[in-house]
Design a protein around this nucleic acid. Sequence first.
DNA 1: ATTGAATTTCAACAATCGTTGAACTAGTAT
DNA 2: ATACTAGTTCAACGATTGTTGAAATTCAAT
Lengths: 213, 213
Amino acid sequence: MTKDMHPTRERILDAAEELFAQRGFEGVSIRQIMTKAEADVSLAYYHFESKRDLFDQVMLRRVEYLNEIRLKALEDVEKRHPDDEPTVEEIIGAFTQPLLTLLAEDHDKWSHYYQLIAQINNSPDRGGELMSRYFDPLVSRFIDALKRVLPDSDPADLYWSYHFLSGALTLTFAETGRIDNLSGGLCRSTDVASVIDRMPAFVAAGFHALCKN
Amino acid sequence: MTKDMHPTRERILDAAEELFAQRGFEGVSIRQIMTKAEADVSLAYYHFESKRDLFDQVMLRRVEYLNEIRLKALEDVEKRHPDDEPTVEEIIGAFTQPLLTLLAEDHDKWSHYYQLIAQINNSPDRGGELMSRYFDPLVSRFIDALKRVLPDSDPADLYWSYHFLSGALTLTFAETGRIDNLSGGLCRSTDVASVIDRMPAFVAAGFHALCKN
DNA sequence: ATTGAATTTCAACAATCGTTGAACTAGTAT
DNA sequence: ATACTAGTTCAACGATTGTTGAAATTCAAT
């Protein structure tokens, strides 16, 4: 139990995570967060330095764990192939499946955090900067692995392929309900199992089409 | 010249479009918009009913034209195949190329509007609702065309494939600069030509992999 | 020159914003 | 009992928010 377990601090982070995810940083006030957390407004400034710091701590609370399990998934794939090379599908699976599995297993815990990531990834203002800070070391590790599997491909093709993957993945995280409308209820944004079944195949085919050897 | 050409109104819409795109609806104040538009604060309420109405008019100003040219592109593809069926690549090209061509030809005019769409598409709050209102009639038309080309595919596969396409396309529109960081400058978010060269191939391969006949 | 409508300016409103300092409570160690 | 620290409450600050009403200006039509 090395985790910071102060209960009030955790309640504030939970409330902030949900509200930031739904309405963005500027769309939510400290008062709304503290009302949802059932705590006094001033407690926000006892446990955090500022609104911006609160936002940063919301991001930091879960990002480290995510990067850990995704790195481990990639290392497991590589260990499974001590002599030959893994497939593109296996590497992409290591990138996406840990996230999707968490979401499927405990939707209430992860959905808001993923929605927040979706918003940041598509935010022209500081989205690139924030996503790079939190995820690029891990992403570079994955792209290196893909370079090894596709050694004769143009690196630009690989980066753009990752870009398309990133867009597809984070729109899934946003869970906007649009696919529900569009399909007349046939598909549901929150149906993670359907995404697990389909996204790796879709994305891997895109990589193969673009990053030919 | 049937367009509404009131110059002040257009300047307000231009300023609002750029600021909403960068910082979101709640991240921008009327005063900031009117300062950029070099007009008095009250003029916002002479030309528009409210901040929300201003936002809606920013959206409406360009959406009709976009839907027109994309529908025309699809009809052109279909006219080119009076007897046989067009390819998946052709239909996806009709969906994406008109948008990307506009962006390549007049980046200053369209980039902010596209950034706004990227943000809305990934906004958990009202993103699904807004995107459906503005684009779903057109999108349904495209999915129907794809159903005709892939008659034996599961419709759910088609809707999810479109979902992945939508995510890849709108993250491109966001132009966050992340691919610039990640690739160490090799790729640039604003390089539309690179996207035109790659996205249709990537996405079409995904459709084929998922929506087999 | 005068009317009248369209457009713009100026001043202000109540509400809410992020943030702070001082007082208060609870519990632990001396 | 006392002192100390962590956690919490209360009241308020200056600034900014969306919005409005009335006055001033512009300009074409009479």
